[in-house]
Design a protein around this nucleic acid. Structure first.
Lengths: 207, 207, 207, 207
DNA sequence: CATGAATGAGTCTTCATTCAT
DNA sequence: AATGAATGAAGACTCATTCAT
């Protein structure tokens, strides 16, 4: 624990959260440039100055959301995987959690893609330390699978990125498609594509 | 020919083109909002007012690029297909041309994805009449193939969109990957995925 | 009192006034179109953005002056009439106050006439609720006079407008005349014309 | 005659007229600032450059209309008075022609009042030489009347201006009144006011 | 002469950021 | 710590005027 959170600290943390939520909503809806600080703090029921108490500027506020989003994603995947021990099952669960999280926060995911070219560097810097930190979970799973000789020996990092790439493609296509089919049904597709390529002996389910 | 194009009209058309090119460059690099009319006309070596001679406003300028991009894409695919008669070969060539064109104009393709959520409606309206008009080439090829009993009988429109979807996914993934592999090598992948699904008798290569 | 007006609110109201005054001066001198927001806020010693804190746009700023002008006129007439009890005396005083006010603010009165054709609708909408609200004073005076049988029974509204019309004509002529005669001397003319027409028994002065 | 007007001069004069007419229409409708050269030459079916062939700039074009308007007014009054010999009748006819002309061109008259404060100096300079030149007719009439001892001896110039002032007031009031009464009916009013004041022996009609 | 494409100075308006209260 | 009034840099857009054809 970092000191005991006095009333003051608590209030501060609460305000930060309120701002983050409001900002997420407004940014997602309007995009970075069309979103205004005014609308964000109106939505957060806070004064304009307060924003600058917690964030250096508009861009930092945006990146603050990215951080928070990444952290939430990490937590979501972690808690989904939980105590599952079977490697393949862990992998499947992690992927599903990953995809579902994006689907649930699709407006922000869209925003991320949307603003990527503007803030590419900054976003990726954050991601490298925060967002992709959850990838360690996937990496761990893969590494474990290799040790247990269930998966091909290969560069773990590459495999992880390949997997994330496939997921993103699927999510992206789903978003563009006006979401007239269930993402959940795509899960087997992802797994099949990914596993068929890397597994030494595919599980018996496959013909 | 529409009357003899006097020097005046020629120059006008030339300037329009210059603006379109400059705008394409600036928009691609900065995104719609960060791009300024000032920079665009500075790059085109033209006065600010000239932009408004040809385009009603910034958005229309952007959409003007979309139009022109779509027209160029159409021409590119058409000329690539040219006089090829074999249906499968035609299809392969068309797909390759389509993908190569996007790879060659990747910065704008990225922009298109980037700004899609802002101008979704307008962009799609333009695309429906212009951009996707080149799809008729693909459609024609497919239709022909069906007549010749080389391809499954199916809804041509759906198949076309499916194909375009696959291509876009591949291009998009390539773009995100920092382009450290050759797009050309992905061509067989696309074809295989698409053809394996729709061809009555897959070519002998496949086991 | 509406809450205690903190220093903030006080300053705000003060700045609004400063802007209104500066705008009145600049608009009067240059007319609506030639007047620039820049000059107005320079004159008010305020930032350009401040204008937009208080007024949606240039036109609203202009109409804001109209409102304020109307309110001031009302107050001016009211305070002039004050506690006078004699109906005729009240009427005379009100008219004089009305005319003097316009003479004192002749530059804005001129502007009002000047811009009337552009903003006719908006101006009249404001006037109907604000500017002409001061007419109620005149109406009240007339109504009272009728009750006391000092004036002919007639439609009060019409009589009021007729009176205002006469005043305006006189003021307008005075303005066009380069003001080489005293407006004050015109007061008896107005009164005579108006009263001779509406008084049951004209005062003995008239032959 | 100023040279024989060759085809060239004729065409030139014709274009000048077309421009003047178009400008009159557009200026009257939009006011000086909102009117654009573009709209004017579109209406005149002439190129934009042609405007500058005949007028130095927008302001001069506007003043060109003033000149032409003044000239037309003069001609109108002159031709109305024609061969009438009786002084009083001449005066009455001249006044009527003057008022009718303004009523017929009310949109431009309104514009004149409207823009007066902007171009006051320029307009009056033109008027002194052109517009008010038609006043000489009125002056001549008055002078003649004095010689014939039908009118008081007085400063002719002042009387003329007084008369014009009265007319203008009447016209202006009529314009503001939404023109729900006939201007023609006001003619006796003008005459009575003016003549009762200046005629030695008022005409028999008056008691 | 006539044209209309090109020009850029001039304006309004927005909005992130600061700072006195 | 919280506020929101004040700020001014920045940017889209207009339009009178010029000039090559």
């Amino acid at each position: 624990m970092t000191q005991k959170p006095g009333k003051r600290e608590k209030r501060a943390e609460h305000n930060r959260k309120k701002l983050l939520n409001a900002a997420m909503a407004v940014f997602s809806q309007k995009g970075f440039h069309k979103a205004t600080i005014d609308e964000i703090c109106r939505r957060a029921n806070l004064g304009k100055g307060t924003v600058y108490q917690y964030f250096d500027n508009k861009k930092e506020l945006f990146l603050g959301i990215v951080d928070s989003f990444a952290a939430d994603l990490g937590k979501s995947v972690e808690s989904a995987v939980g105590a599952i021990t079977d490697d393949l099952k862990r992998l499947e669960t992690a992927i599903t959690a990953y995809v579902q999280f994006h689907a649930a926060h699709r407006s922000f995911y869209r925003l991320l893609v949307h603003e990527e070219s503007s803030f590419a560097k900054e976003i990726h810097q954050r991601f490298r330390t925060e967002y992709f930190s959850h990838l360690r979970i996937l990496e761990d799973i893969l590494r474990e699978g290799m040790k247990n000789a269930k998966m091909k020996k290969m560069n773990v990092r590459s495999a992880t990125f390949a997997l994330v790439g496939i997921c993103n493609s699927v999510i992206f296509r789903w978003l563009l498609s006006e979401r007239n089919y269930s993402l959940r049904n795509e899960m087997p597709v992802i797994l099949e594509i990914f596993l068929r390529g890397i597994c030494i002996r595919p599980s018996g389910k496959e013909a």
